[in-house]
């Protein structure tokens, strides 16, 4: 009897993000008639895709017990690379995408090596990296607004395309999330990630190279930031040079709403997926209700703060 009760409790606890998502969606469906329409739902999903993909990567860094706050600028750099290298035909597109992904991997590796080797605080290190990357982007663009004409159609498709009436970015988001969860659940690296974040001392004494694990986690985070950036570039084709800077807060909100621990060792991509949808469902509801942009910012900030506080309280409870 008691065991059964505990079991139900545990199931609820593990699925809080999904339960909240359902509750909020139900509430908004009642409040706003436009909410539960195919158009609006796919709209939410499409908007959530880019940040959601980056949140999948950040989930890896966070489970390993480290933050990656450089993903905002990294997304920006990858997006700017995508526009500036003028991918108008297939060869140029392949080169562009590879360069953008490699940039993400390099920045991730740099983060990982600094945090791993010198045991610096990952928050401070990656905030520093956020500025370094922003600076590189500004030098690269000479501070100019960037637009592109005649983008190679298949590349444009990953940001703008639809299969039938279904936006293609959502499919990429789903694919990245599925791959992410599979890595976490079914690879040795996944286990080592949880172990490293849960207790680095024990992990080292069990023969796990925690430095290597963290570098890999950061590379994944950097690469997903690049993927997000490429998709946004493909969609907007017109960007400010400082685009992306500061957006890591949104990413972090998604990850924390998804139940990933601030202290490492706990969380899942499935959770992050729900957290991302939750954030975008709430901002969609604010738009539908006609909330002013300024108010929306305040609300987003508050959601972030409440999530952080809840996450800390949650962890203390065990």
């Amino acid at each position: 009897m008691d065991d059964k009760k505990n079991h139900i409790k545990a199931v609820i606890r593990d699925n809080v993000p999904w339960i909240m998502l359902l509750v909020f969606s139900a509430l908004f469906s009642i409040l706003f008639p436009q909410f539960l329409t195919f158009r609006n739902i796919t709209n939410i999903l499409r908007n959530a895709s880019m940040i959601g993909i980056i949140a999948v990567g950040m989930t890896f860094a966070m489970i390993a017990g480290t933050f990656d706050l450089s993903v905002g600028s990294m997304m920006g750099l990858a997006a700017i690379i995508t526009l500036k290298m003028s991918p108008t035909d297939l060869p140029r597109t392949i080169l562009t995408v590879l360069v953008a992904l490699a940039a993400g991997a390099l920045v991730g590796m740099a983060n990982g090596l600094i945090v791993g080797r010198y045991r610096t605080s990952s928050i401070i290190t990656t905030i520093g990296m956020e500025y370094v990357v922003l600076g590189i982007t500004l030098v690269y663009t000479r501070g100019q607004h960037i637009t592109i004409k005649g983008m190679y159609k298949p590349l444009e498709f990953i940001g703008k395309g639809r299969i039938g009436t279904f936006p293609f970015p959502i499919i990429i988001f789903l694919a990245v999330a599925v791959i992410g969860q599979l890595i976490l659940s079914f690879t040795r690296f996944g286990r080592q990630l949880y172990a490293t974040g849960g207790n680095p001392n024990t992990s080292e004494l069990s023969g796990i190279n925690i430095g290597k694990v963290r570098v890999l986690a950061y590379i994944i985070s950097g690469v997903t930031a690049s993927i997000g950036g490429i998709m946004i570039a493909a969609r907007t084709q017109n960007l400010d040079p400082s685009f992306g800077f500061g957006q890591e807060t949104d990413v972090l909100t998604c990850v924390l709403l998804g139940g990933v621990s601030l202290y490492g060792g706990k969380g899942s991509v499935i959770g992050t997926f729900a957290g991302t949808l939750l954030l975008y469902v709430v901002s969609n509801a604010m738009t539908l209700s006609g909330t002013a942009y300024e108010m929306q910012l305040i609300c987003k900030g508050l959601i972030f703060l409440i999530t952080v506080a809840a996450s800390v309280i949650w962890q203390k409870k065990g």
Partner: peptide, 15 residues
């Protein structure tokens, strides 16, 4: 130093 408290028994044994 010996355990990862946030993981379950099976994951600790196999780590």
């Amino acid at each position: 130093q010996g355990l990862v408290l946030s993981m379950n028994i099976s994951d600790n044994i196999n780590m």
